[in-house]
């Protein structure tokens, strides 16, 4: 009961969903559509547990004073405020929750992500050093792409354009080089990685379906 039933559910569910992709039978197609809806319904109940965990954790921090009480209180108050506003006024356009989303959440999340610009620049300063051949290639590729994506790159391409037998040719064509790097060698290595990642995902999925991988049962 404790091991066999979950393994059986995983096996049947996994096999059905795998076969429905390859076999065009109306019954399997209907099961597929139903399963997508079931996922949403089941996920809501899992979310209740996640919310309980969040509230418990914040309340514990508040009670035990592991950090300044303002922080857990901020999380709890903002969470309940949004949930209550959503329950009473809904989520539609113009509702208070929609207002909070557009005026606070979107700009603040964008600001947090923009902080990464500083840290990624600092990482680039350390990574882009021509210590050996490989790192020099990395540096040159990155510099070409950076130059190719800024207006200065376009300007340099225009300034260095010469005409050879009636055809325009840019000596320092950073935008063109960027396009070539991103669409030719980059595509090749990305495909190699995609093959590796996909084979890993498929083999792990098969291990789960066949009950070889049971880590999730612990």
């Amino acid at each position: 009961m404790k091991i066999m039933v979950p393994l059986l559910i995983v096996f049947i569910g996994g096999m059905l969903m795998t076969f429905q992709y390859y076999i065009d039978i109306p019954l399997l197609n209907n099961i597929y559509k139903g399963v997508l809806d079931w996922h949403m319904v089941i996920a809501v109940f899992a979310l209740v547990i996640a919310v309980k965990s969040l509230i418990e954790r914040q309340w514990k921090n508040f009670r035990q004073k592991t950090e300044h009480p303002v922080y857990p209180l901020t999380t709890l108050i903002s969470f309940f405020a949004v949930v209550l506003l959503g329950i009473f006024f809904g989520l539609k356009q113009g509702s208070p929750v929609n207002f909070i989303y557009n005026n606070f959440l979107v700009p603040l999340q964008a600001t947090i992500f923009s902080l990464l610009a500083f840290y990624i620049s600092s990482a680039a300063y350390r990574a882009f050093r021509a210590k050996n051949f490989s790192s020099t290639v990395l540096l040159i590729a990155a510099m070409i792409v950076v130059m190719g994506r800024i207006p200065l790159g376009d300007l340099i391409a225009t300034w260095t354009t010469i005409s050879i037998s009636g055809k325009d040719f840019a000596i320092l064509d950073f935008p063109g080089w960027t396009r070539w790097i991103l669409t030719v060698p980059n595509v090749g290595i990305k495909r190699a990685f995609i093959f590796g990642i996909t084979l890993g995902i498929v083999s792990t999925s098969l291990k789960v379906i066949l009950g070889i991988e049971r880590g999730w049962l612990k």
Binding site: K2, V5, P6, L7, I9, V10, F11, I12, G13, G14, M15, L16, M17, T18, Q20, Y21, Y22, Y32, V35, W38, H39, I42, A43, F45, A46, I201, V202, T204, S205, L206, V208, I209, W216, L217
Partner: peptide, 18 residues
């Protein structure tokens, strides 16, 4: 573990083909 098994089994099954 039963709902988890359902989500996991059907979830990985949905991944393989595509």
């Amino acid at each position: 573990k039963y709902p988890l098994a359902f989500l996991l089994g059907t979830g990985v099954g949905l991944e393989i083909g595509p």
